Computed example of a mutant assay.
Amino acid sequence: MTETPNPHIIDADTLTGEMRPIRRAVLSLGSNLGDRLAALQGAVDAIADTPDVWVTGVSPVYETQPLNCPPGSEAFLNAVVLVDTTLSAARLLDRAQAIEDAYDRERGEVANAPRTLDVDLIVVGDRRSDDPALRLPHPRAAERAFVLKPWFDLEPDAELPDHGPIADLLARIGLDGVEPRTDLVLDRG
């Protein structure tokens, strides 16, 4: 993140008048089953259609080799979406999972199984959480070039809380298996 959210910048809920801080959030998208690009675009559109969420950036698309996935898994398409939101991290996670469900995401017992759509919260403002249902910042983001590279494209000076500048993290892990797909473009929704 380029800055800590200003707690004095607020948005008033039009129904209740409740004042809530605006936070920057980073969401990572991935798909390696079905029409991968359509799933990513659908996720961007659904995020953009979410009340109290404003899409501020959508990264280029990358094709990435499966990481720690079952043998025979296909390549992923990945992208990152930057948003400003007044939603709580828990509400944003609920929305991310509802979007996955809309694309028939199956959650099984096999770790890192192929999926039609994955929507991960990487950071939500400077929020930290060790709750098993919501870990922030995302516990493996610092090791994942398929998250860091698209994020770097949007915010080269961003920092992953508790890990440092994403440019440094990316330099450390490299870009093996992460290929730009300049022929594929996502609209901001």
Rank of each mutant, 00 (worst) to 15 (best):
Y103L: 08
Y103M: 08
D104E: 15
D104R: 15
R105K: 14
R107V: 09
R107T: 05
R107S: 06
R107Q: 10
G108K: 10
G108C: 08
E109L: 12
E109C: 02
E109M: 09
V110H: 07
A113L: 13
A113P: 04
A113F: 10
A113N: 06
A113D: 11
P114I: 12
R115D: 12
R115G: 07
T116P: 06
T116Q: 13
T116M: 11
T116W: 07
T116E: 14
D118Y: 13
V119L: 02
V119Q: 01
V119M: 03
V119K: 00
V119D: 00
D120T: 04
L121P: 02
L121N: 01
I122A: 03
I122Y: 01
D126N: 14
D126G: 11
R127M: 15
R128I: 14
R128M: 13
S129W: 00
D130V: 09
D131V: 10
P132M: 06
P132D: 04
A133V: 14
A133G: 12
L134D: 08
L134T: 08
R135Q: 15
R135H: 12
L136W: 01
H138T: 15
P139E: 13
R140F: 05
A141F: 02
A141H: 02
E143F: 09
E143I: 07
E143Y: 10
E143G: 05
R144K: 12
R144Y: 11
R144M: 13
F146M: 07
V147C: 03
V147T: 10
L148T: 02
L148M: 10
P150I: 01
F152P: 03
F152C: 06
F152M: 10
L154K: 04
L154R: 03
